[in-house]
């Protein structure tokens, strides 16, 4: 683990994702208001804020998961290595193959553990070495030892924490560059949460991770950078340590010290 805290003037190295002046509306209601944000490569970026502040909506905009929501309109741009994800000739399906996602509630498919992972490979046209890839993904997600003897049992028989790690393994099997996590621990008990956090530390060198959480301790523990969102506005964004110990904004300070939210 790289423990040297990023210095404040040390601007986020190479932005993988750039959010530029992004505004998202549900009908008339503004959920995300002119947010600009650079997500650095191979770092963990946490998005925190009170519930309803638009953090999940912002996260889902990063791999076009908002496309299926009716009445949602967007302005601004999201760039992935300089490519506008919302450009006309960009296929959202291809976007999601590079930018994976893990959801709030574990949502394994009602199939076997093995098939849960192999399916993603199959639809992406990967046919070589599927068993090896499944094993590697499960190992990366720290689940292999627990399930290696029952790969063909139903995924629904797993515990909630195991299901969530399976969902992470499922996303990792596709070898995405970015992993988006929408409050991945909110439905889990403290022990499962700790295991997922351990997992995040192991993944941070290989993947760019964006995690939405309402748990400030979690953000402080696992992330390199933190963005604080309130009422759709990006209040503050910077290295986690600075945001939590020396926030620039009064509102951030109030929030991280528990005075509101």
């Amino acid at each position: 683990m790289n423990q040297s805290p990023p210095v404040e003037k040390d601007a986020p190295a190479v932005p993988v994702l750039q959010v530029q002046e992004l505004t998202i509306r549900y009908g008339d209601k503004v959920a995300v208001d002119r947010v600009s944000l650079d997500i650095p490569e191979t770092k963990i970026t946490a998005i925190i804020g009170p519930s309803g502040c638009g953090k999940s909506t912002l996260l889902r905009a990063l791999n076009r998961m908002n496309d299926y929501i009716e009445g949602l309109t967007m302005q601004g741009r999201v760039l992935y290595r300089g490519v506008d994800l919302y450009a006309k000739d960009v296929d959202p399906v291809q976007v999601r193959r590079r930018i994976g996602m893990v959801f709030q509630k574990p949502n394994p498919f009602p199939k076997s553990i093995y098939k849960n992972i192999a399916w993603g490979l199959a639809i992406n046209g990967i046919r070589d070495g599927v068993p090896q890839r499944v094993e590697r993904a499960l190992q990366q997600a720290a689940l292999w030892d627990e399930v290696k003897d029952r790969l063909h049992d139903s995924a629904l028989a797993l515990s909630g924490g195991q299901q969530q790690r399976l969902c992470i393994a499922r996303a990792l099997a596709l070898e995405p560059e970015v992993l988006l996590m929408d409050e991945p621990c909110s439905a889990l008990d403290p022990i499962s949460t700790a295991r997922i956090e351990d997992l995040l530390f192991q993944l941070r060198d290989t993947y760019t991770i964006v995690i939405v959480t309402h748990n400030m301790q979690q953000a402080a523990r696992v992330s390199d950078y933190t963005a604080f969102l309130d009422g759709g506005h990006l209040v503050e964004f910077g290295p986690t340590e600075q945001v939590f110990t020396r926030p620039k904004e009064k509102r951030t300070e109030d929030y991280v010290t528990g005075r509101f939210g």
């Binding site: 992935y80 290595r81 300089g82 490519v83 994800l85 450009a87 000739d89 960009v90 296929d91 399906v93 291809q94 976007v95 590079r98």
Partner: peptide
């Protein structure tokens, strides 16, 4: 990676879209 190559990555797969 060059930007144009990246763009190609996200280009729809014609057969699949068809």
């Amino acid at each position: 990676m060059r930007s144009s190559q990246q763009q190609a990555l996200f280009r729809p797969r014609r057969s699949q879209q068809w």
